[in-house]
Design a protein around this nucleic acid. Structure first.
Length: 576
RNA sequence: GGGCCUGUAGCUCAAUGGUCAGAGCAGGGCGCUCAUAACGCCUUGGUUGGGGGUUCGAGUCCCUCCGGGCCUACCA
């Protein structure tokens, strides 16, 4: 038994997330957490809402609410949706928590004491009418290069030229449209990542088992051009962790907050502390997951994220950790493995939160149960490249895999048994060569399934699980108990007994992917034995003769052509 | 502009430089009748985006062209 710490990238607070967000981090993280628990490991699975930053303030203003209230509401909404998708977080925290405020300030203070924070005076665009400094991206104007009139202050989307806000012709605030902008001087803290470059490179190059997607992005940032640059870790905003506090080794940062990307990953740690608080446990309880000087030496830490998050998790967050560890007292845990995902596209384009394009988590649950989405998304996870959601593919995959292959297997065997032997596991008969062959095949496939799950090879694990389901149908077809029962009821009884046991086995194996259906299968088998099938032959004897079971309701109903067409139309446009 | 990823059957995807490029779905045929018109067996289908090169051998490595995607540090 091992100890495994799993974090999912924390979803941003400004709205309900779409299926692309879900499959890029939370869902595969949940799959792994559930699997590792099923294997008997001690798991800490952490997620949270990422609440700070300009977009949160603007979304709150648009909703006509104070940002604190807006974030509190949206946190609850996201938490409920996570529960709806059966995301089995040990804790779903908030980056605005007191724990995160304290830890973020602690890390900043420690980094400052190590000489790793520098004060930099710089010029920033201030919008008089908005009464706020504007991030470059929130300034619009005409591109000096191509004349596009909606160019952003950081880059022109039309000609892709990188810009400085002061390059724009007729600049205006993207928030209000106001043109009363002026450049003001402002002071910010920078994390001196440059000086940690060697440590970071040594650490990253030691991770030979990481996916190319992950290491190539990290190395590019580390070495491209002039190499890794220092990063500003404060902003002129209201909503965030205050950058001036008692004991801060710098002055003059009143009214400024830490940059959201500085405090967001620290929330992984803080959310674990929030978990301990919620459980009424002491600091030791969470520190044993995060501090190698407090017992976290044997923890394996895995992070899940979309590819856009990789630089922050391979460079800036590790820089924070490595820098703080130089102080020599607390020793914080660095990530052991990063599983990153590409993007899921929607019907020929991108999912987009800002444009309301695609299917969002609340909409998805309103039309079908979580298991349908979990199965499709995980079995099509964008691991090797971007992948695409289409309604046709969704309908076909779900109907075939869940209804025809798995659901129908459970249906045919339970109903057959009920009609011939009643609703108890039948006794008598012995197994033979056919059953030996089945057990051998299942053993080999389960071993392969375990390998894919350990490696977090999500699509391959799904394909193997499906093959395990198919093996049940193949067996039934070849054994044909409906024929055998006419001449040799005892032999048929042995076949049925094994098949009912196979149903329980399927519940155990399938639970990480489709937890609700697994529960339904287990309940129908009248069992609560979730133990992992280390030995298949033994596992197939868990339900003894005479054990009562029931015929479950249809596990997965099929998606009709009419429904598919309806949803296709309903979700074709933009969410309002 | 630079960097990275990617292009394989109608669709979604596999293949440490090494048998005849494989699966699932869709299509075709046969079987079965326990089951959600489900299941099983067999089967059609490929100039691996184009062109060149390295090699005994290339989907895989190199060059080039074409297409798609992502990142490029103040959105998160």
């Amino acid at each position: 038994m091992a100890r495994i710490l799993i974090t999912s990238a924390i979803p941003y607070i400004n709205g309900i997330k779409h299926l692309g967000n879900l499959v890029g981090s939370q869902l595969p993280a949940d799959l792994t957490a559930r699997y590792m628990r099923a294997r008997g490991h001690e798991v800490m699975f952490i997620c949270a809402t990422d609440e700070h930053g300009t977009p949160a303030e603007l979304a709150a203003a648009k909703a006509g609410k104070p940002v604190e209230a807006y974030c509190a509401e949206m946190h609850e909404v996201q938490k409920k949706l996570g529960e709806g998708f059966r995301l089995s977080f040990d804790h779903f925290g908030r980056s605005s928590s007191a724990r995160n405020r304290a830890l973020t300030q602690y890390f900043a203070k420690t980094l400052g004491e190590q000489g790793l924070i520098e004060e930099v005076t710089e010029q920033q665009v201030f919008s008089i009418d908005d009464n706020r400094f504007l991030p470059d991206r929130y300034i619009e104007g005409t591109c000096p290069n191509c004349g596009y009139d909606k160019a952003r202050g950081d880059q022109c989307e039309n000609c892709t030229k990188q810009l400085d806000p002061t390059d724009l012709i007729n600049p205006r605030s993207a928030v209000s449209g106001s043109t009363r902008l002026e450049v003001r001087e402002t002071k910010h803290l920078y994390l001196k990542q440059k000086s940690l470059r060697g440590d970071l490179r040594d650490w990253i190059t030691s991770k030979t088992d990481w996916p190319v997607l992950t290491t190539s992005i990290a190395l590019k940032w580390l070495d491209d051009g002039e190499g890794l640059q220092d990063r500003g870790i404060t902003r002129d905003l209201y909503w965030g962790v205050p950058a001036q506090f008692d004991g801060a080794p710098w002055q003059g940062m009143e009214g400024k907050v830490f940059y959201v990307w500085f405090d967001a990953p620290i929330e992984y740690i803080a959310a674990t502390a929030e978990w301990a608080d919620a459980k009424g446990l002491g600091d030791d309880a969470w520190q044993r997951w995060w501090r190698t000087d407090k017992g976290a030496g044997d923890v394996r830490y895995i992070e899940f994220m979309g590819k856009d998050n990789v630089p922050f998790h391979t460079l800036s967050f590790p820089a924070t950790i490595i820098g703080a560890n130089r102080a020599g007292d607390a020793q914080w845990k660095l990530v052991d493995y990063i599983k990153s995902f590409n993007y899921l596209n929607y019907d020929g384009g991108q999912f987009s939160t800002s444009q309301g394009r695609g299917v969002f988590m609340d909409q998805a649950l309103s039309i079908l149960p979580a298991d349908y989405w979990r199965w499709w998304l995980l079995s099509h996870a964008p691991e090797s490249g971007d992948s695409e959601f289409t309604w046709e593919n969704f309908q076909a995959s779900v109907n075939k895999d869940l209804a025809d292959v798995l659901g129908n297997f459970v249906s045919r065997i339970t109903k057959f048994c009920r009609s011939k032997f009643g609703e108890t596991v039948p006794e008598g008969g012995t197994t033979g060569e056919r059953e030996e062959t089945l057990i051998a095949e299942l053993s080999a496939r389960i071993r392969a399934y375990e390998g894919f799950m350990e490696a977090m090879d999500v699509r391959k694990a799904a394909a193997e699980l499906r093959a395990i389901w198919v093996a049940g149908n193949e067996y039934l077809q070849a054994a044909a108990p409906w024929s055998v029962v006419k001449t040799d009821p005892e032999a048929a009884a042995a076949m049925v007994r094994l098949s009912l046991n196979l149903t329980r086995l399927y519940a155990v194996l399938s639970a990480p992917f489709i937890p609700d259906a697994a529960e339904a299968m287990m309940a129908a088998m009248g069992s609560a034995d979730w133990s992992w099938p280390d030995d298949v032959a033994t596992a197939l004897q868990a339900l003894p003769a005479g054990h009562a079971f029931s015929v479950p309701d249809v596990l997965f109903r099929k998606i009709t052509d009419e429904e598919r067409a309806d949803w296709q139309t309903r979700f074709a446009g933009v969410r309002t």
